[in-house]
Design a protein around this nucleic acid. Structure first.
Lengths: 200, 200
DNA sequence: TCCATTCCTTAACTTTTGTTAACGAGTCCG
DNA sequence: CGGACTCGTTAACAAAAGTTAAGGAATGGA
Protein backbone atom coordinates (compact mmCIF):
# COMPACT_ATOMS: atom_id res chain seq x y z
CA UNK A 1 0.00 0.00 0.00
CA UNK A 2 1.02 3.61 -0.45
CA UNK A 3 3.22 4.69 2.50
CA UNK A 4 1.09 7.74 3.34
CA UNK A 5 -2.07 5.69 3.25
CA UNK A 6 -0.40 3.15 5.53
CA UNK A 7 0.49 5.99 7.89
CA UNK A 8 -3.09 7.23 7.98
CA UNK A 9 -4.35 3.70 8.59
CA UNK A 10 -2.56 3.69 11.93
CA UNK A 11 -5.44 5.95 12.96
CA UNK A 12 -8.42 5.47 10.62
CA UNK A 13 -9.40 3.40 7.58
CA UNK A 14 -9.89 5.20 4.29
CA UNK A 15 -11.97 3.89 1.42
CA UNK A 16 -10.47 4.18 -2.04
CA UNK A 17 -12.87 7.06 -2.73
CA UNK A 18 -11.64 8.89 0.37
CA UNK A 19 -7.99 8.25 -0.38
CA UNK A 20 -8.19 9.36 -4.02
CA UNK A 21 -8.37 13.16 -3.54
CA UNK A 22 -5.36 13.15 -1.21
CA UNK A 23 -3.37 10.86 -3.51
CA UNK A 24 -4.15 13.21 -6.40
CA UNK A 25 -2.62 16.14 -4.50
CA UNK A 26 0.73 14.52 -3.73
CA UNK A 27 3.83 15.98 -5.35
CA UNK A 28 7.16 14.12 -5.23
CA UNK A 29 10.20 16.18 -4.37
CA UNK A 30 13.89 15.53 -3.77
CA UNK A 31 16.05 17.40 -1.30
CA UNK A 32 19.80 17.59 -1.55
CA UNK A 33 21.86 17.36 1.62
CA UNK A 34 21.41 20.57 3.68
CA UNK A 35 18.51 21.74 1.50
CA UNK A 36 15.53 23.23 3.38
CA UNK A 37 12.03 21.85 3.22
CA UNK A 38 10.87 24.55 5.66
CA UNK A 39 12.79 27.78 6.21
CA UNK A 40 12.58 29.76 9.43
CA UNK A 41 10.88 33.11 8.87
CA UNK A 42 9.01 31.98 5.77
CA UNK A 43 5.53 30.58 5.25
CA UNK A 44 5.41 26.79 5.24
CA UNK A 45 2.01 25.80 3.90
CA UNK A 46 3.07 22.27 2.93
CA UNK A 47 3.38 18.98 4.73
CA UNK A 48 5.50 16.07 3.57
CA UNK A 49 6.02 12.41 4.13
CA UNK A 50 9.64 11.26 4.11
CA UNK A 51 9.97 8.37 1.68
CA UNK A 52 13.70 7.90 2.15
CA UNK A 53 16.53 9.85 3.73
CA UNK A 54 16.43 11.95 6.90
CA UNK A 55 15.76 15.50 8.06
CA UNK A 56 16.20 17.59 11.17
CA UNK A 57 14.01 20.33 12.63
CA UNK A 58 15.97 23.20 14.14
CA UNK A 59 15.61 26.71 15.51
CA UNK A 60 18.18 29.37 14.73
CA UNK A 61 18.70 31.67 17.70
CA UNK A 62 19.23 35.43 17.39
CA UNK A 63 22.96 34.87 17.98
CA UNK A 64 23.09 32.49 15.01
CA UNK A 65 23.33 29.28 17.05
CA UNK A 66 21.16 26.40 15.91
CA UNK A 67 19.21 24.05 18.16
CA UNK A 68 17.92 20.81 16.71
CA UNK A 69 14.75 19.50 18.32
CA UNK A 70 13.47 16.69 16.07
CA UNK A 71 14.52 14.16 13.48
CA UNK A 72 12.45 12.59 10.71
CA UNK A 73 13.10 9.33 8.89
CA UNK A 74 11.28 7.04 6.44
CA UNK A 75 7.51 7.11 6.75
CA UNK A 76 7.43 10.15 9.02
CA UNK A 77 5.08 13.01 8.37
CA UNK A 78 6.63 16.43 8.85
CA UNK A 79 5.96 20.13 8.40
CA UNK A 80 5.36 23.27 10.39
CA UNK A 81 2.07 22.61 12.18
CA UNK A 82 2.43 26.06 13.62
CA UNK A 83 2.77 27.81 10.27
CA UNK A 84 0.04 25.70 8.64
CA UNK A 85 -2.44 26.36 11.44
CA UNK A 86 -1.75 30.02 12.07
CA UNK A 87 -0.71 31.16 8.59
CA UNK A 88 2.31 32.82 10.18
CA UNK A 89 5.95 32.32 9.11
CA UNK A 90 7.57 29.22 10.54
CA UNK A 91 9.66 29.66 13.67
CA UNK A 92 11.98 26.84 12.67
CA UNK A 93 13.58 25.19 9.67
CA UNK A 94 13.46 21.62 8.46
CA UNK A 95 16.52 20.56 6.52
CA UNK A 96 17.72 17.35 4.88
CA UNK A 97 20.62 15.61 6.61
CA UNK A 98 21.15 13.42 3.57
CA UNK A 99 19.63 13.21 0.09
CA UNK A 100 15.93 12.79 0.81
CA UNK A 101 12.82 11.87 -1.15
CA UNK A 102 9.53 13.45 -0.14
CA UNK A 103 5.88 13.32 -1.01
CA UNK A 104 4.50 16.78 -0.35
CA UNK A 105 0.98 18.15 -0.25
CA UNK A 106 -0.54 21.48 0.74
CA UNK A 107 -2.05 21.74 4.21
CA UNK A 108 -4.95 23.54 2.53
CA UNK A 109 -5.85 20.25 0.88
CA UNK A 110 -5.94 18.49 4.21
CA UNK A 111 -8.08 21.27 5.66
CA UNK A 112 -10.48 20.84 2.76
CA UNK A 113 -10.64 17.10 3.41
CA UNK A 114 -11.34 17.81 7.10
CA UNK A 115 -14.43 19.68 5.99
CA UNK A 116 -15.55 17.20 3.36
CA UNK A 117 -14.94 13.86 5.05
CA UNK A 118 -15.60 13.10 8.72
CA UNK A 119 -12.99 10.35 8.53
CA UNK A 120 -10.29 12.92 7.78
CA UNK A 121 -11.44 15.10 10.64
CA UNK A 122 -11.10 12.08 12.89
CA UNK A 123 -7.66 11.37 11.51
CA UNK A 124 -6.71 15.01 12.12
CA UNK A 125 -7.85 14.80 15.72
CA UNK A 126 -6.09 11.54 16.41
CA UNK A 127 -2.91 12.68 14.70
CA UNK A 128 -2.79 15.87 16.79
CA UNK A 129 -3.50 13.85 19.94
CA UNK A 130 -0.74 11.40 19.08
CA UNK A 131 1.73 14.19 18.45
CA UNK A 132 0.67 15.87 21.68
CA UNK A 133 1.42 12.76 23.72
CA UNK A 134 4.87 12.61 22.14
CA UNK A 135 5.65 16.25 22.84
CA UNK A 136 4.39 15.96 26.40
CA UNK A 137 6.64 12.99 27.01
CA UNK A 138 9.58 14.90 25.56
CA UNK A 139 8.82 17.89 27.76
CA UNK A 140 8.57 15.72 30.86
CA UNK A 141 11.90 14.11 30.04
CA UNK A 142 13.59 17.50 29.77
CA UNK A 143 12.17 18.65 33.09
CA UNK A 144 12.64 15.41 35.00
CA UNK A 145 15.98 14.03 33.87
CA UNK A 146 19.54 15.33 33.87
CA UNK A 147 21.39 15.54 30.54
CA UNK A 148 23.21 12.35 31.43
CA UNK A 149 19.98 10.56 32.23
CA UNK A 150 18.43 11.83 29.01
CA UNK A 151 21.30 10.40 27.00
CA UNK A 152 20.94 7.07 28.75
CA UNK A 153 17.20 7.12 28.13
CA UNK A 154 17.91 7.66 24.44
CA UNK A 155 20.41 4.80 24.47
CA UNK A 156 17.82 2.43 25.86
CA UNK A 157 14.90 3.69 23.78
CA UNK A 158 13.78 2.38 20.44
CA UNK A 159 15.09 5.44 18.64
CA UNK A 160 18.22 3.66 17.50
CA UNK A 161 18.01 5.38 14.13
CA UNK A 162 18.87 8.64 15.82
CA UNK A 163 21.98 7.20 17.41
CA UNK A 164 23.12 5.39 14.30
CA UNK A 165 22.59 7.91 11.59
CA UNK A 166 22.77 11.37 13.13
CA UNK A 167 25.94 13.42 13.77
CA UNK A 168 26.54 13.72 17.48
CA UNK A 169 26.36 17.50 17.52
CA UNK A 170 22.69 17.29 16.54
CA UNK A 171 21.98 14.64 19.12
CA UNK A 172 23.55 16.94 21.72
CA UNK A 173 21.20 19.69 20.66
CA UNK A 174 18.25 17.30 20.83
CA UNK A 175 19.25 16.46 24.40
CA UNK A 176 19.58 20.13 25.30
CA UNK A 177 23.36 20.23 25.79
CA UNK A 178 26.40 21.31 23.82
CA UNK A 179 28.40 18.84 21.70
CA UNK A 180 31.34 19.20 24.09
CA UNK A 181 29.15 18.33 27.02
CA UNK A 182 27.71 15.24 25.32
CA UNK A 183 31.22 14.09 24.54
CA UNK A 184 32.09 14.37 28.23
CA UNK A 185 28.94 12.52 29.25
CA UNK A 186 29.87 9.69 26.91
CA UNK A 187 33.40 9.55 28.33
CA UNK A 188 31.99 9.49 31.86
CA UNK A 189 29.61 6.65 31.09
CA UNK A 190 32.34 4.63 29.38
CA UNK A 191 34.55 5.01 32.45
CA UNK A 192 31.67 3.95 34.69
CA UNK A 193 31.01 0.91 32.49
CA UNK A 194 34.65 -0.13 32.60
CA UNK A 195 34.72 0.24 36.37
CA UNK A 196 31.54 -1.83 36.70
CA UNK A 197 32.95 -4.60 34.52
CA UNK A 198 36.24 -4.84 36.39
CA UNK A 199 34.40 -4.73 39.71
CA UNK A 200 32.07 -7.59 38.69
CA UNK B 1 -23.01 31.70 29.02
CA UNK B 2 -21.75 28.56 30.71
CA UNK B 3 -17.95 28.75 31.12
CA UNK B 4 -17.31 25.40 29.46
CA UNK B 5 -19.51 26.32 26.53
CA UNK B 6 -17.63 29.60 26.24
CA UNK B 7 -14.39 27.66 26.19
CA UNK B 8 -15.62 25.39 23.42
CA UNK B 9 -16.81 28.40 21.45
CA UNK B 10 -13.21 29.55 21.10
CA UNK B 11 -13.01 26.73 18.56
CA UNK B 12 -16.50 25.84 17.29
CA UNK B 13 -20.11 26.94 17.77
CA UNK B 14 -22.50 24.53 19.46
CA UNK B 15 -26.24 24.61 19.05
CA UNK B 16 -28.31 24.18 22.19
CA UNK B 17 -29.08 20.62 21.09
CA UNK B 18 -25.38 19.83 20.76
CA UNK B 19 -24.49 21.44 24.05
CA UNK B 20 -27.22 19.70 26.06
CA UNK B 21 -25.71 16.20 26.31
CA UNK B 22 -22.38 17.54 27.52
CA UNK B 23 -24.06 19.86 30.00
CA UNK B 24 -26.07 16.93 31.32
CA UNK B 25 -22.87 15.01 32.07
CA UNK B 26 -21.17 17.71 34.14
CA UNK B 27 -20.58 17.03 37.81
CA UNK B 28 -19.49 19.83 40.17
CA UNK B 29 -16.70 19.00 42.59
CA UNK B 30 -14.68 20.87 45.20
CA UNK B 31 -11.03 20.25 45.97
CA UNK B 32 -9.41 21.20 49.24
CA UNK B 33 -5.90 22.62 49.19
CA UNK B 34 -3.41 19.85 48.24
CA UNK B 35 -6.19 17.47 47.25
CA UNK B 36 -5.58 15.49 44.04
CA UNK B 37 -7.79 15.63 41.01
CA UNK B 38 -5.48 13.18 39.20
CA UNK B 39 -3.09 10.87 41.05
CA UNK B 40 0.08 9.53 39.49
CA UNK B 41 -0.12 5.78 38.98
CA UNK B 42 -3.92 5.69 38.91
CA UNK B 43 -6.42 5.81 36.08
CA UNK B 44 -7.69 9.31 35.32
CA UNK B 45 -10.72 8.93 33.07
CA UNK B 46 -12.13 12.38 33.85
CA UNK B 47 -11.54 15.88 32.55
CA UNK B 48 -12.42 19.04 34.43
CA UNK B 49 -12.86 22.73 33.91
CA UNK B 50 -11.52 24.91 36.70
CA UNK B 51 -14.28 27.29 37.78
CA UNK B 52 -12.29 28.97 40.54
CA UNK B 53 -9.03 28.32 42.33
CA UNK B 54 -5.81 26.92 40.91
CA UNK B 55 -4.06 23.60 40.37
CA UNK B 56 -0.64 22.34 39.41
CA UNK B 57 0.41 19.35 37.32
CA UNK B 58 3.48 17.55 38.62
CA UNK B 59 5.55 14.42 38.20
CA UNK B 60 6.96 12.60 41.22
CA UNK B 61 10.37 11.16 40.45
CA UNK B 62 11.56 7.76 41.72
CA UNK B 63 13.63 9.56 44.37
CA UNK B 64 10.49 11.29 45.66
CA UNK B 65 11.26 14.72 44.20
CA UNK B 66 8.39 16.54 42.52
CA UNK B 67 8.60 18.51 39.28
CA UNK B 68 5.77 20.86 38.43
CA UNK B 69 5.18 21.37 34.71
CA UNK B 70 1.84 23.19 34.40
CA UNK B 71 -0.60 25.42 36.20
CA UNK B 72 -4.35 25.73 35.70
CA UNK B 73 -6.58 28.66 36.66
CA UNK B 74 -10.17 29.79 36.06
CA UNK B 75 -11.66 28.57 32.80
CA UNK B 76 -8.87 26.13 32.04
CA UNK B 77 -9.61 22.60 30.95
CA UNK B 78 -7.41 19.98 32.57
CA UNK B 79 -6.92 16.26 32.91
CA UNK B 80 -4.57 13.50 31.87
CA UNK B 81 -4.87 13.39 28.10
CA UNK B 82 -2.42 10.55 28.21
CA UNK B 83 -4.48 8.44 30.61
CA UNK B 84 -7.77 9.25 28.87
CA UNK B 85 -6.44 8.35 25.44
CA UNK B 86 -4.43 5.27 26.31
CA UNK B 87 -6.44 3.92 29.24
CA UNK B 88 -3.18 3.60 31.16
CA UNK B 89 -2.50 5.01 34.65
CA UNK B 90 -1.54 8.67 34.67
CA UNK B 91 2.16 9.47 34.78
CA UNK B 92 1.55 12.65 36.76
CA UNK B 93 -0.69 14.16 39.41
CA UNK B 94 -2.88 17.24 39.33
CA UNK B 95 -3.36 18.84 42.71
CA UNK B 96 -5.17 21.91 44.01
CA UNK B 97 -2.92 24.74 45.16
CA UNK B 98 -5.88 26.43 46.86
CA UNK B 99 -9.52 25.51 47.43
CA UNK B 100 -10.80 24.87 43.94
CA UNK B 101 -14.18 24.40 42.27
CA UNK B 102 -14.38 22.10 39.29
CA UNK B 103 -16.85 20.91 36.72
CA UNK B 104 -15.90 17.37 35.83
CA UNK B 105 -17.04 15.00 33.11
CA UNK B 106 -15.88 11.61 31.90
CA UNK B 107 -13.65 11.51 28.84
CA UNK B 108 -15.83 8.63 27.66
CA UNK B 109 -18.67 11.13 27.24
CA UNK B 110 -16.50 13.33 25.06
CA UNK B 111 -15.45 10.33 22.99
CA UNK B 112 -19.11 9.46 22.50
CA UNK B 113 -19.83 13.02 21.38
CA UNK B 114 -16.89 12.80 18.93
CA UNK B 115 -18.68 9.89 17.31
CA UNK B 116 -22.15 11.40 17.37
CA UNK B 117 -21.53 15.00 16.38
CA UNK B 118 -19.04 16.16 13.73
CA UNK B 119 -18.85 19.49 15.50
CA UNK B 120 -17.36 17.81 18.58
CA UNK B 121 -14.88 15.91 16.47
CA UNK B 122 -13.82 19.23 15.00
CA UNK B 123 -13.55 20.73 18.46
CA UNK B 124 -11.46 17.75 19.56
CA UNK B 125 -9.11 18.22 16.64
CA UNK B 126 -8.73 21.94 17.15
CA UNK B 127 -8.25 21.55 20.89
CA UNK B 128 -5.50 18.98 20.42
CA UNK B 129 -3.88 21.21 17.79
CA UNK B 130 -4.03 24.20 20.10
CA UNK B 131 -2.51 22.26 22.97
CA UNK B 132 0.16 20.92 20.64
CA UNK B 133 1.22 24.42 19.62
CA UNK B 134 1.50 25.37 23.28
CA UNK B 135 3.58 22.35 24.19
CA UNK B 136 5.83 22.83 21.18
CA UNK B 137 6.47 26.43 22.19
CA UNK B 138 7.24 25.31 25.72
CA UNK B 139 9.65 22.68 24.44
CA UNK B 140 11.40 25.18 22.18
CA UNK B 141 11.79 27.57 25.09
CA UNK B 142 13.42 24.88 27.21
CA UNK B 143 15.86 23.95 24.47
CA UNK B 144 16.63 27.47 23.26
CA UNK B 145 16.82 29.62 26.37
CA UNK B 146 18.90 29.53 29.52
CA UNK B 147 17.09 29.33 32.88
CA UNK B 148 17.68 33.04 33.34
CA UNK B 149 16.24 33.82 29.92
CA UNK B 150 13.28 31.57 30.62
CA UNK B 151 12.53 33.46 33.81
CA UNK B 152 12.73 36.77 31.98
CA UNK B 153 10.49 35.42 29.25
CA UNK B 154 7.96 34.49 31.92
CA UNK B 155 8.25 37.95 33.46
CA UNK B 156 7.43 39.59 30.15
CA UNK B 157 4.74 37.12 29.11
CA UNK B 158 1.05 37.39 29.74
CA UNK B 159 1.16 34.63 32.31
CA UNK B 160 1.11 37.08 35.19
CA UNK B 161 -1.21 34.82 37.15
CA UNK B 162 1.62 32.34 37.52
CA UNK B 163 3.92 34.95 38.98
CA UNK B 164 1.32 36.46 41.27
CA UNK B 165 -0.35 33.45 42.73
CA UNK B 166 2.11 30.57 42.68
CA UNK B 167 4.78 29.80 45.31
CA UNK B 168 8.22 30.35 43.87
CA UNK B 169 9.37 26.77 44.37
CA UNK B 170 6.76 25.63 41.86
CA UNK B 171 7.73 28.34 39.40
CA UNK B 172 11.32 27.15 39.68
CA UNK B 173 10.20 23.65 38.82
CA UNK B 174 8.19 24.97 35.87
CA UNK B 175 11.33 26.71 34.59
CA UNK B 176 13.38 23.56 35.05
CA UNK B 177 15.62 24.75 37.90
CA UNK B 178 15.80 24.36 41.67
CA UNK B 179 14.21 26.92 44.02
CA UNK B 180 17.67 27.94 45.21
CA UNK B 181 18.78 28.58 41.67
CA UNK B 182 15.73 30.67 40.86
CA UNK B 183 16.38 32.73 43.95
CA UNK B 184 19.91 33.41 42.72
CA UNK B 185 18.67 34.29 39.25
CA UNK B 186 16.30 36.83 40.78
CA UNK B 187 19.08 38.32 42.87
CA UNK B 188 21.29 38.56 39.80
CA UNK B 189 18.63 40.30 37.75
CA UNK B 190 17.89 42.74 40.56
CA UNK B 191 21.58 43.62 40.77
CA UNK B 192 21.70 44.09 37.01
CA UNK B 193 18.63 46.31 37.11
CA UNK B 194 20.13 48.48 39.84
CA UNK B 195 23.38 48.82 37.88
CA UNK B 196 21.46 49.76 34.74
CA UNK B 197 19.47 52.42 36.59
CA UNK B 198 22.51 54.05 38.19
CA UNK B 199 24.36 53.87 34.86
CA UNK B 200 21.52 55.57 32.94
C1' DT C 1 46.12 10.55 -4.12
C1' DC C 2 45.80 14.83 -1.86
C1' DC C 3 43.47 18.60 0.12
C1' DA C 4 39.62 20.58 2.49
C1' DT C 5 35.96 19.86 5.37
C1' DT C 6 33.40 17.83 8.94
C1' DC C 7 33.27 15.68 13.15
C1' DC C 8 34.54 14.01 17.75
C1' DT C 9 37.50 14.37 21.57
C1' DT C 10 40.23 16.52 25.05
C1' DA C 11 42.01 20.29 27.80
C1' DA C 12 41.88 24.60 30.51
C1' DC C 13 39.18 27.93 32.39
C1' DT C 14 34.86 30.36 33.65
C1' DT C 15 30.18 30.32 34.85
C1' DT C 16 26.25 28.26 36.44
C1' DT C 17 23.69 25.02 38.79
C1' DG C 18 22.88 21.44 42.34
C1' DT C 19 23.19 20.26 47.27
C1' DT C 20 22.89 20.97 52.00
C1' DA C 21 22.13 23.77 55.69
C1' DA C 22 21.04 27.81 58.34
C1' DC C 23 18.39 32.03 59.11
C1' DG C 24 14.46 34.98 59.23
C1' DA C 25 9.85 36.62 57.66
C1' DG C 26 5.27 35.53 57.27
C1' DT C 27 1.06 32.57 58.15
C1' DC C 28 -2.09 29.53 60.16
C1' DC C 29 -4.04 27.46 64.04
C1' DG C 30 -4.36 25.97 68.70
C1' DC D 1 0.02 34.70 72.47
C1' DG D 2 2.91 31.17 71.03
C1' DG D 3 4.42 27.34 68.34
C1' DA D 4 4.51 24.74 64.04
C1' DC D 5 4.89 25.24 59.33
C1' DT D 6 5.80 27.15 54.89
C1' DC D 7 8.52 29.94 52.15
C1' DG D 8 12.31 32.70 50.18
C1' DT D 9 17.05 34.01 50.70
C1' DT D 10 21.86 33.35 51.42
C1' DA D 11 26.23 30.87 52.11
C1' DA D 12 29.71 27.28 51.17
C1' DC D 13 31.09 23.60 48.67
C1' DA D 14 30.91 20.08 44.99
C1' DA D 15 29.50 18.81 40.49
C1' DA D 16 28.25 19.82 36.04
C1' DA D 17 27.84 22.52 31.98
C1' DG D 18 29.30 26.38 28.86
C1' DT D 19 33.23 28.48 26.17
C1' DT D 20 37.21 28.56 23.52
C1' DA D 21 40.76 26.37 21.35
C1' DA D 22 43.59 22.75 19.55
C1' DG D 23 44.45 18.24 17.61
C1' DG D 24 43.44 14.09 15.12
C1' DA D 25 40.31 10.75 12.68
C1' DA D 26 37.15 10.15 9.07
C1' DT D 27 34.92 11.70 4.94
C1' DG D 28 34.29 13.42 0.43
C1' DG D 29 35.51 15.80 -3.73
C1' DA D 30 38.79 17.47 -7.08
Amino acid sequence: MHPLRTYIHRFVSLTDAEWAPLAAGLVPRQLRRKEDFVTQGQLAPELAMVVSGSCRLFYTRPDGEERTTYFFFDNHLMGSYQSCLTGQPSQFSIQALAPTELLTFPYALLRQLFEQYPVYERFGRQLAEYLLLGTDARLAELLLLSPEQRYQALLHSHKTKILERIPQQYIASYLGVTPVSLSRIRARLQADDAAARSGT
